[in-house]
Design a binder for these strands. Structure first.
Length: 483
DNA sequence: ATGTTC
C-alpha cells in the first residue's frame, strides 16, 4: 500500500518531507520541484521511495530528489543520497540496474543547412553502424583478455585500440575510466552478456540523436564548449547494457543474503544494501566501477561509429567534420567525493541514480579546459522537444552534494505510454516537425513518445531556480535512432 | 534499464 508522505514547501523550488513522516526516517527528504511539476508526483510512490531512502544507515543530511523524479527500483529515479564511509551503506538500487547509464555530446563543424539534405541518409547510416534494440549485438566479440582490459580501463582501452582520439578522454567524467575497478568482481554471467554488446545502443530510453543548437544562454561558456547557434551536434545516451544489469542482479542477491544472515529488515526490500565497509559492499563498488568502465568503452565505440557514418555520408575527413567530444557524463553511479558537511570537509559515498554530477567552477574533477566555468551537465529531453547543456553551480555543492537533474523524467510508465500512444501518430507528429526517426521496434517509439515525459523546460528551470545548474545551450532534435 | 517474467 502506498503511503503518500507530506510535502512542506520550503521555498519556491524546494519541498521537504520532514524526518519522522515515515517511520524510521533518519533525515528529511528534499525534493527540488515547482508547481507545474509537482502535480505529476504528489500522489506518486516515488515520494515514498524518497522517504524510504532516508531510513538507510549512515545517510548524511537528507535524501534528495531532482525535479525529474519518477518511480524506480528502491530509490526513485532522480535520487541523490550521500553516506558516511564508516557508518553508511552502498545500495545497488541507488545506482540503478544500468550502471553508468550516461550521456555524451559530440559537436560538428556542420550547420543545419549542411545536414538537412542528407538527414535521412545520415540517420539510416547511424542505424546501420550502431546496433540498437533489445538484445542488440555487436559485430565483434571480446576475447577474455580484452574483456579484462575493458573492465579495468574503460574508454581508455577503446582509444588505445584505435577507437577514437587521445583528446576524447580529457573531456569525459573520470576521463572515461573509474579508478578502483576490479574485473575479478564481475561474474562470468555478466561477462557472457557483455562480450557481444560493446558498441551497441540497447533499448528503452537509449538513443542516438542528431541535434541542432537552438539557443545559447551562457555566451561566455558556450564558445569554450565549441557550441554556436545552428550548429549540428550529436547526443548519445546508453550505458553498460546486459553486463551492468547482471552485475546489479548478482550483487543485490549477495546483499540480500547478507541482510538475511544478519536478520536486518528494510522498509522496502528493493533497498537491498551492505555496509560500505564490508566485504560485500567493497566488492560491489569494485564491480560497479568495472561496469562503469564497460559503459564508457561502449560510448567510446559508438563515438567511433558516429564518426564513420559522418565520413560516409558527407565524404569529408574526420578533421573537417570535427566531431570532437564536448563532454560525457554518468547519471547512474556512486562515487567517493569530498563535500562540506556542517562546515567541515568530509569524504562521502554519493549515490546518483538518474541524477548528474554538477560540480562548479574550480573543482579539480572538472576538466582543466572547463574548470573556470564548471562541469557541463548533459540533459536529454524527449525526442520531440529539446535537450540541454547546463553547467554546475556552487549551489549544487551547498544543496545537492554537487548534483542536478538527468533528463525530462517520465510522466507515464512504459506500459501506460504504450496504451496511450499509437506508433503511427507519434511518428507522424515527429515527421511533420521534420524529425527523422528510425527505431528497432514500434514499442521503442511509443514507450518514448514525447507525451510520456515531463516538460524538460520546467525541469531545467527548477534546476536553475534551485541554484544547482544554469542553462548553457538548448538543443533541438533533427533525427533520432531509438533503441 | 534488461537475453523486456530465469
Amino acid at each position: 500500500m502506498t503511503r503518500v508522505p507530506p510535502l512542506v514547501a520550503r521555498d519556491e523550488f524546494t519541498w521537504e518531507i520532514p524526518a519522522g513522516s515515515v517511520p524510521g526516517m533518519r533525515v528529511p527528504g528534499i525534493l527540488f520541484s515547482n508547481r507545474a511539476l509537482l502535480g505529476a508526483v504528489e500522489s506518486d510512490p516515488s515520494l515514498e521511495q524518497l522517504a524510504n531512502v532516508a531510513t538507510l544507515p549512515g545517510i548524511v543530511r537528507s535524501s534528495l530528489a531532482m525535479p525529474d523524479i519518477h518511480f524506480g527500483y528502491g530509490f526513485p529515479v532522480g535520487g541523490v543520497a550521500a553516506f558516511d564511509l564508516a557508518e553508511g551503506v552502498v545500495s545497488p538500487g541507488g545506482i540503478g540496474y544500468d550502471i553508468n547509464c550516461g550521456v555524451r555530446l559530440l559537436r560538428t563543424s556542420l550547420g543545419v543547412d549542411d545536414v538537412r539534405p542528407h538527414l535521412k541518409a545520415l540517420i539510416d547510416s547511424l542505424y546501420r553502424n550502431v546496433p540498437s534494440g533489445v538484445g542488440s549485438r555487436a559485430g565483434v566479440t571480446l576475447s577474455p583478455s580484452e574483456m579484462e582490459e575493458v573492465l579495468a580501463n574503460g574508454a581508455r582501452w577503446a582509444v588505445d585500440r584505435g577507437h577514437g582520439r587521445r583528446e576524447d578522454l580529457a573531456v569525459q567524467e573520470e576521463e572515461g575510466r573509474l579508478a578502483g575497478a576490479d574485473p575479478s568482481a564481475v561474474g562470468d554471467g555478466a561477462r557472457r552478456r557483455g562480450v557481444r554488446q560493446l558498441g551497441t545502443l540497447g533499448s528503452g530510453n537509449h538513443f542516438l540523436e542528431v541535434q541542432a543548437v537552438d539557443e545559447i544562454f551562457h555566451p561566455e561558456f558556450a564558445p569554450v564548449l565549441g557550441l554556436t547557434p545552428r550548429q549540428v551536434v550529436v547526443m548519445l545516451h546508453t550505458g553498460s547494457r546486459g553486463l551492468g544489469h547482471q552485475v546489479a542482479t548478482d550483487y543485490i542477491a549477495t546483499m540480500d543474503a547478507r541482510l538475511a544472515r544478519e536478520g536486518v529488515t528494510l522498509v522496502d526490500r528493493q533497498l537491498s544494501c551492505a555496509p560500505i565497509a564490508s566485504p560485500e559492499g567493497e566488492r560491489y563498488l569494485r564491480a560497479m566501477a568495472a561496469g562503469a568502465n564497460f559503459a564508457w568503452a561502449n560510448r567510446q565505440l559508438i563515438t567511433d561509429a558516429v564518426r564513420r557514418s559522418f565520413r560516409e555520408v558527407f565524404h569529408r575527413s574526420d578533421a573537417e567534420i570535427d566531431l570532437a567530444v564536448v563532454y560525457d557524463v554518468a547519471h547512474n553511479m556512486a562515487k567517493v567525493e569530498e563535500h562540506r558537511v556542517d562546515g567541515a570537509p568530509r569524504r562521502l559515498l554519493v549515490h546518483r541514480k538518474g541524477a548528474t554530477r554538477a560540480f562548479p567552477a574550480g573543482r579539480p574533477e572538472v576538466p582543466e579546459r572547463y574548470r573556470a566555468h564548471g562541469q557541463p551537465v548533459l540533459i536529454p529531453g524527449d525526442m520531440g522537444t529539446a535537450s540541454y547543456v547546463l553547467v554546475g553551480l556552487p549551489g549544487a555543492m551547498e544543496r545537492s552534494f554537487g548534483s542536478s537533474c538527468h533528463g525530462a523524467g517520465r510522466l507515464l510508465s512504459r506500459h501506460a505510454a504504450v496504451r496511450r500512444f499509437r506508433f503511427d501518430e507519434v511518428t507522424r507528429a515527429l515527421t511533420e516537425r521534420g524529425i527523422v526517426v528510425r527505431s528497432a521496434s514500434r514499442e521503442g517509439v511509443t514507450e518514448e513518445a514525447p507525451g510520456a515525459y515531463k516538460d524538460v523546460e520546467e525541469v531545467v528551470k527548477v534546476a536553475e531556480g534551485a541554484g544547482l545548474t544554469r542553462r548553457v545551450a538548448r538543443l533541438v532534435p533533427l533525427g533520432v535512432v531509438k533503441g
